[in-house]
Each structure stands twice: as C-alpha cells, then as structure tokens.
Amino acid sequence: MSELVFDAVSVRYGRHTILREVSLTVPSGATVGLVGESGSGKSTLARAAVGLSPVTGGRVLLDGADVRGLARRPVQLVFQDPYGSLNPRMSIGESIAEPMPRGTRNRREEAARLLELVGLDPQRAGVRPAQLSGGQRQRVALARALAARPEVVIADEITSALDVSVQGSMLNLIRTLQREMSLTMLFISHNLAVVRYVSDIVAVLRHGEIVESGPAERLLKDPRHPYTQDLLDALPKL
C-alpha cells in the first residue's frame, strides 16, 4: 500500500465551486477520517480520487504519480448506498470478480477468499444482491473494492444507510481489515464518533475547504478551529 496525496484539488461545475484547493495526505497504512456536513464536498473529493468527478485544478497523486495516468485502478471506492452499488443482474461472485486485475488466476477461488475475508459464506457467491440484507451487500461492495488489489480504499459514508446494530459489525470489520492488511484508507463520514473509531488522522471539510486536520485523538480532544469545536458541541450526549 502507498501514500495518496490530494494536491490543491479543485472541482468546479460551471460557476459552482465544490472543492477549493483541497490538500490532504493519506499516509501509507493509515486511515484518514474525513468529516463534513452535507454539501461540504466530501463525496466529490472521493469521486475525484477515482476519476468520477472532473478535477478542474490540482492533482491527485499516488506515490507521486498522477492517478489519471495510471493504467491500473489503484484507488477503489465503496459507495454509501448498498442497494444501488451492486448490479442486480450479476451474482455477487461475478461482481467481485469483475475488477480483479488482468491475469488473475482462479477468479472463483479469489472471490471465495474475499467473501470469507468480509465475513460472508463463500458458498453464496452465486446469489444475486436482492437476496442479501443491506449489511451483507455492503460487505460484498467492500470485497469488490478489495478484489482490485487497490493501493488505497475510499469508503464514502459506508455505514450511514445501515441500521445501528449492523453499523457496529461493519466498523469491526473495517478495524480487522486495517489490522490484517495494513489498509490505506480514506474513511468519509458525517458521524464524528464513527470516524473517531476507525481513523488515525481526522480532517474536517467545510464548504469545499479543509478547515482543520491532525491526529485523531488530538483533534477531537482539542479542536483548534471553531467549526470543529461547533461540530463536536453539536453531538448529542448520552
């Protein structure tokens, strides 16, 4: 795994600026939690890294090389909505096998291995997404991202469509993968507590600009920017 760098990335649609010169580094083997409210541009940042949003300024670099020039797809994205992110007409095994790099031998075995890795029964590789629950689908989506043997995985609000009790097991899975695969990850969420649980570094995005970033523990305990402070204050307390 390797380092992902957003170097002064801007995204503009017509007159609307979604991202304004965002610079952010995801160090190798670390997880960066990106926090922001709706409309802050956090999904756009994720999509910019994988080429789904047009980058109008700056560059996205992987180990110093512009990701747009790379032949393979070293950055993979897991989407928010597990109901829309799997092709309903493909079995989950086929979906997982699709992004595997060319020349992968035994795609079937590899798919089974990945299913097992995300905590699903490899025997079920033949089923269609419609037969799975939301949490199970999200695990398949994660397995598909891993199948591409990515250098970096971006998770865009992957737990926000799940029920609270399912969210917990998804977060545990992320923690396990971090430990076992030394995953490099950009974890995007509106939920500070969720970000805190999985991130080494936290960055706060507001109106398309990073207002603050730093080690998770320090930033969440001792925020320096008033906006971060306000976000933390707004959290309901038990």
Binding site: R72, S85, E98, R144
Partner: peptide, 26 residues
C-alpha cells in the same frame, strides 16, 4: 447514474462491457 455503474468504471471496466454487461441487461 447508479452507483454500480460508477463502481464498474472505477474498477476499470471498458465502455463496451459497461454497455453490454451493466446497462443493457438492466
């Protein structure tokens, strides 16, 4: 516009396969 097509593009699936495997069947 659905995410699975975006996911396929991120995975490096070509235009033709995108059309025949992901869009037309649906």
């Amino acid at each position: 516009g659905r995410d699975f097509v975006a996911a396929a593009r991120v995975a490096g699936v070509g235009r033709l396969r995108l059309m025949t495997r992901h869009i037309l069947p649906n």
